[in-house]
């Protein structure tokens, strides 16, 4: 593959400098809706990280060995979405089977993230940037961890903010978006560390 970025550079870049949520603003809906409590956002963040890491590998394989050889790259959107949906369903069934406590803390979020655009976004970026399998896996994992980091930080802030008096017109999604913007500025401070495009 053309680029020679090491996988750990991609991994850290995906967490900090190229955080999928704060630089690309993907995955906003669940970020806004489920960031009220640190505990629930931990569950959701973990679920996103696992699904991103796994589906980026699966979709990489599907892209490389099915779509490219058959010259069907234009179908990648639909194929990626179908694979993500099936994987999420499958992992939900497995978690429900093996562990009650894991299902209680993580499983119920899985249906929420089937349609999370950040997950599809990761799969599309890795294709555009022509990552290798190893790079794709670490890009997926890093992005997932980055997304989790952002939502947990946001939940922490919102928990503290619950006691503050927010002007009525800004309460709810309004103030959350403003906080997300300031968080994005803060994350830009990392940008001197590593850069990937």
């Amino acid at each position: 593959m053309s680029n020679g970025i090491t996988f750990y550079a991609i991994f850290f870049a995906a967490i900090f400098t190229n955080n999928i949520l704060l630089t690309n603003y993907l995955g906003m809906c669940s970020f806004l809706a489920v960031s009220r409590e640190v505990k629930t956002s931990q569950g959701l963040g973990m679920a996103v990280a696992i699904v991103m890491a796994a589906t980026s590998v699966l979709n990489w394989l599907a892209y490389r060995y099915i779509l490219v050889p058959l010259d069907l790259v234009y179908l990648r959107f639909i194929v990626f979405i179908v694979i993500i949906a099936a994987f999420v369903q499958l992992i939900e069934m497995i978690i429900e089977r093996v562990s009650d406590s894991l299902y209680a803390s993580l499983g119920i979020f899985l249906p929420l993230i089937t349609v999370n655009c950040a997950i599809l976004g990761v799969c599309l970026f890795m294709v555009i940037r022509e990552y290798t399998l190893l790079q794709a896996f670490f890009y997926g994992l890093g992005s997932g961890i980055g997304w989790a980091l952002a939502i947990i930080a946001m939940a922490g802030i919102r928990q503290k903010m619950a006691k503050a008096r927010v002007p009525k017109g800004l309460a709810g999604a309004g103030i959350t978006l403003i906080i997300a913007g300031i968080m994005a500025l803060a994350f830009m401070g990392f940008s001197g560390m590593i850069q990937i495009t």
Partner: peptide, 18 residues
């Protein structure tokens, strides 16, 4: 046809797994 076939193939495999 290849496109339709590929989509059907992928969906079928996934459906069978499900």
């Amino acid at each position: 046809l290849i496109g339709i076939g590929a989509i059907c193939g992928v969906s079928t495999v996934l459906a069978v797994i499900m």
